[in-house]
Write a protein that binds this DNA or RNA. Sequence first.
DNA 1: GTCCACTACTTTGTATAGCAAGATAGATGA
DNA 2: TCATCTATCTTGCTATACAAAGTAGTGGAC
Lengths: 135, 135
Amino acid sequence: MLYKVVDGLICAYYSVLQDSVEEVNKMASSSQMLKGVLEGCLLAVISKGETYGYEMIERLQNYGLTMVSEGSIYPVLMRMQKEGLVSTVMRPSPNGPKRKYYSLTSEGRSDLEEFKERWEILSSGVNTLMEKGKV
Amino acid sequence: MLYKVVDGLICAYYSVLQDSVEEVNKMASSSQMLKGVLEGCLLAVISKGETYGYEMIERLQNYGLTMVSEGSIYPVLMRMQKEGLVSTVMRPSPNGPKRKYYSLTSEGRSDLEEFKERWEILSSGVNTLMEKGKV
DNA sequence: GTCCACTACTTTGTATAGCAAGATAGATGA
DNA sequence: TCATCTATCTTGCTATACAAAGTAGTGGAC
């Protein structure tokens, strides 16, 4: 019961201290890590050089992430664009319709760094969990 | 357009060949990996010895997975129980209400093994993606 | 010259995962 | 008896991942 109250106080604290909203988001996204791996991967791929969606799928599949498909990444890319993590340019393709090239904004780059840290924590945690259980 | 047809054929193929349903599920769960890390972690924790929910949270936090909370794991545990991955026993606690102890069924053990394989693929993929990007 | 196939992006609809918040309840000590 | 700790379950929301289908430009085959 007490910790509920403490939670409440913390919430109130955060909602008053506007500056801390970032902190809250960071915590939220940290627990969201279990889901949001795809976003981090896309940031990483784009960080290696301007690309477009259709190519990213191939790239990811080359990295062994074969489960990724168009229906997954395009919505994520649009969300990232809306959040200002990437900037886009349309350019004609030599063989097909126009391509939408993505590159990271500075905000996108710092987001990628944060993601790397969180990924490091998560993956090393899960790895030790799995290894020790080899029996 | 053609690949739509091919998709259709593959779907039909699978729906006819009942034995292949497992394959479909495996593929589905493989793409679900991005989400379902928590389930794998719980399976791993339980595999190390019978425990109860409240304790699992502490265990996971010891592994650095600090983002896990009660509201997250109890629904997952119940789902796993419903799917027959774990069996449960209620036993009194020395200091508090009864505890619900979980242990893996054989199905749960094989699910854990599958999860380990998929985790290996995912994490090594993401790791190389992140490492090469260190610039 | 009109199909077909390939490249490429977008939209829609759905299932469900993760989680905060709170309800419930046994045990214990002040 | 009241507060606190342990412990589980439930409710309700948000957003993720995804399949499926829609749109559209290009080029080759016939």
